[in-house]
C-alpha cells in the first residue's frame, strides 16, 4: 500500500510537469503560430521565405533534437548556459508547435473562398473588418478538427522532456522498473488516456457547437 502511494505520488508529480509543458505550449504557441502564419502568407517576399524556411526546419527535424539544441546551444556556443531545463523544454515546444499551428492556420485562411473577401469589400468593410467579422470565424470552424489532432499529439509529446532529464511522468515510472515494477509504466498510459479522452470530448463538443451552419 505504501508502495502504491509512493508510485501514485511520483507519477502524479511527474505528470504535473507534463501538464505545465502542455499548457504553456498551448498558451504561447497558439498566438505565436498566428504571427508565423501571417509571415508565411506575407506579400513581402523576404519575410515570406524566411518564415517558410523556419517552418521547414522546425517541421523537418525531430522535436527531441530541438530540445537538445535549445538546452545546450546557449551554453556551448555563447557561454550562457540554460539555467532551467523546464524552460528549455517549453521554449523548444513553443517554437515547434507554433510552426505546426501556423501551417494549420494558413491552410484554414487560404481555404476561405475569395468571394467572401470580395463580398466584404463591396460592402465597404475595411480589411480588418473583413478578417475579424467574416473570415476569422469560418477559419476557426475549419481548423478545429486539425487543431484537436495536433493538441492531442502535444499531450503525448510532453514526455520527450525526459530527453534532458526533466522528471516528467514516464521518467518517474521508469525509475520503478529498476525495482522490478512494470505497473507504474503501464499506469502512465492511463494519465495520457484520461487527458486525451477529455480533450477528445471537448473538441467533439466545440465541433458540434460550430456545426450550426454548413460551409
Amino acid at each position: 500500500m505504501d508502495k502504491f502511494i509512493e508510485v501514485f505520488n511520483s507519477l502524479t508529480s511527474g505528470f504535473g510537469l507534463n501538464c505545465i509543458i502542455f499548457l504553456s505550449t498551448l498558451v504561447l504557441a497558439i498566438p505565436l503560430g498566428l504571427i508565423v502564419a501571417f509571415g508565411s502568407m506575407s506579400e513581402f517576399k523576404p519575410l515570406k521565405w524566411l518564415t517558410k524556411t523556419f517552418v521547414w526546419i522546425i517541421r523537418g527535424t525531430p522535436l527531441m533534437l530541438q530540445i537538445f539544441v535549445v538546452f545546450y546551444a546557449p551554453g556551448l556556443l555563447f557561454e550562457i548556459p540554460m539555467r532551467s531545463r523546464l524552460t528549455a523544454v517549453i521554449i523548444a515546444f513553443v517554437i515547434n508547435y507554433a510552426a505546426y499551428f501556423s501551417e494549420i492556420y494558413r491552410g484554414g485562411i487560404e481555404s476561405i473562398p475569395v468571394g467572401q473577401y470580395e463580398a466584404g469589400q463591396v460592402l465597404g468593410l475595411t480589411k480588418k473588418q473583413v478578417f475579424s467579422k467574416i473570415v476569422l470565424f469560418q477559419v476557426i470552424k475549419r481548423i478545429v478538427p486539425p487543431m484537436g489532432n495536433e493538441i492531442i499529439t502535444l499531450v503525448k509529446d510532453t514526455s520527450l522532456a525526459r530527453a534532458i532529464a526533466v522528471a516528467e511522468i514516464i521518467m518517474q515510472a521508469e525509475r520503478f522498473t529498476k525495482e522490478g515494477l512494470i505497473l507504474p509504466l503501464f499506469s502512465t498510459g492511463l494519465y495520457f488516456l484520461v487527458v486525451n479522452g477529455l480533450l477528445t470530448l471537448l473538441f467533439g463538443y466545440i465541433e458540434k457547437r460550430l456545426n450550426y451552419y454548413k460551409g
Binding site: G115, A119, V122, Y213
Partner: peptide, 13 residues
Amino acid sequence: FGLVFQSFNLFPQ
C-alpha cells in the same frame, strides 16, 4: 456601388 454576385457570396455563419 452595390454588387450582386453570381455565386451570392453570403456569409455562411
